[in-house]
């Protein structure tokens, strides 16, 4: 149990997928303009990422094994694409506005490097099924957490008197950098 907790804390804070692994920056910058959208995106990514880690583990262990490991990346992408497709339809049905707000970033979860990165890291770290699930969940929660915090910050930034050259994405990048600096405080906490 402690192990899983450590994985969770580790992936949410210490090895935050965005802040310290610098993965998944595309939706991080793209869907953080509004807090609501960020929460939706976080939920969607959490859903996809957790399922994808579990499914990828199963595929990798039981279908591919050692012999077909060269197909790993390819098959992971297929699995992820399938889950994303399902999520997309689900969101379109339940919240068309969120669907529109997420826009291109929703199908792009497929190519979100965080979503592919975590299953691959799972394989690399030789996690078992549950560990993979927790690793995926933790990574996704970490992603959602910083995404939401970042979105709330950007909402405030939008009304700030930022100098012209830094307005928009520029100051957002600086903010992301400073956030990353703050997250370095977790360095050395776990492993």
């Amino acid at each position: 149990m402690e192990n899983y907790l450590l994985i969770l804390i580790g992936t949410v804070f210490v090895n935050n997928i965005v802040m310290s692994k610098i993965l998944g920056l595309c939706p991080f910058m793209g869907v953080s303009r509004k807090l609501e959208a960020a929460i939706g995106m976080g939920a969607a990514t959490t859903f996809v990422l957790t399922l994808a880690s579990g499914a990828s583990y199963l595929v990798d262990t039981y279908l591919l094994g050692q012999d077909l490991s060269y197909l790993r990346t390819l098959s992971f992408i297929v699995v992820i694409a399938g889950i994303v497709g399902f999520t997309e339809m689900f969101i379109k049905k339940t919240s068309p506005v969120l669907f529109r707000v997420l826009g291109i970033y929703l199908p792009l979860i497929t190519t979100n490097c965080a979503v592919l990165g975590i299953p691959l890291l799972n394989v690399q770290e030789q996690h078992n099924f549950l560990e993979s699930l927790f690793y995926g969940l933790g990574g996704a929660l970490g992603f959602s957490l910083v995404l939401m915090l970042f979105a709330a910050m950007r909402e405030r930034l939008e009304a700030a008197d930022v100098p012209k050259p830094f307005r928009g994405v520029s100051i957002a990048m600086i903010t992301a950098g400073l956030m990353s600096l703050a997250f370095m405080g977790f360095a050395g906490l776990i492993r």
Binding site: S75, V78, G82, G85, K93, P96, R100
Partner: peptide, 29 residues
Amino acid sequence: MAAIGLVLGGILGWAAIKLRVQDDPLVEK
């Protein structure tokens, strides 16, 4: 691979029917 593709395709097809969007309230908004 093909099997994965088939299974996923099946699920998606089922979902597409189940989750079809009737009207687009976006236009109203």
